[in-house]
Design a protein around this nucleic acid. Structure first.
Lengths: 150, 150
DNA sequence: TATTGTTATACTCTATAACTATA
DNA sequence: TATAGTTATAGAGTATAACAATA
């Protein structure tokens, strides 16, 4: 089944093998990301927040949109990260109701360190491929992830 | 950064682009899996349990091992799934302390339906690739995920 | 003594609903 | 009236520590 290791090909479902490989790659990659986060006492969601805010300053609602979460969920999430001095809140200049969220210097520093950690942690996987294969894999993934609608 | 969309190449870190693509593919795939689970009132963890038990009968501790969770976490997880008639518990025949967990008929039926749902939900992505590209992507992912240690 | 599973407890993540303050 | 964010509340997922039963 998908997400498991057995790839039983249903007749006519020629994508099962790829779907299975994608699911397994996803779980493996997520495990690496989760561990990199846990090693720094972060949840996967907190890791994503740091990644998203690395080059952006967003309102609470916009951040919720990026994460696919409810705005009420953001309050606690940002509260905890702010208490740890990773994020900062500031009232929006243009809208009295809105609150901007952005990385603190410490948060930016941690985000940078996490990037390095993750690249290193994934290298046992990526190094199984030759350079040309890595480029090919990257190209195929990007093509698959591209927003093009054709 | 990794997990975000901006791929800033650090000098010498030639894997950043691939790591970014892997992370984005992981989040996209996990989003599909999470939605397929949520559409059936399951968490991602419950989905994984169904997938793992699809062709296995495991003890609580072994199941915890597959999931990378503590055994104490399994109790509640299995409790809830058992209450919904998706899983069943039975005392181990060989060890009086152990408890076997396995899919109920309803659980197996749901696991099968989920597989179909996921393949369909991922098809907008996979269909962006030509058949030969899909096979190539699958091969590269499998090579990367292979347990070989060279 | 060591292992298997459960229980007790606590914290994070998440959602829904109700609230406030701005627009 | 509608939107931005918070608060209150509740449930799932997770871990640690202590425990009972069995090995």
């Amino acid at each position: 089944m998908v997400t498991s290791s057995s790839a039983q090909q249903a007749p006519g479902a020629a994508q099962d093998g790829l779907v299975d490989a994608l699911a397994r790659a996803a779980f493996t990659t997520m495990a690496v990301l989760t561990k990199a986060a846990a090693d720094n006492d972060l949840s996967l969601t907190q890791l994503r927040v740091l990644a998203i805010l690395r080059d952006r300053r967003l309102r609470m609602t916009a951040l919720a949109g990026y994460l696919g979460l409810e705005k009420s969920t953001m309050t606690g999430l940002v509260d905890r990260a702010e208490k740890r001095r990773l994020l900062q809140r500031a009232p929006s200049a243009s809208d009295g109701r809105a609150v901007d969220v952005f990385l603190s210097p410490e948060g930016a520093e941690l985000a940078g360190r996490l990037t390095t950690d993750i690249v290193h942690a994934l290298s046992p996987l990526t190094s199984k491929l030759a350079p040309a294969e890595r480029r090919l894999l990257q190209t195929l993934l990007e093509q698959m992830l591209s927003p093009h609608d054709s």
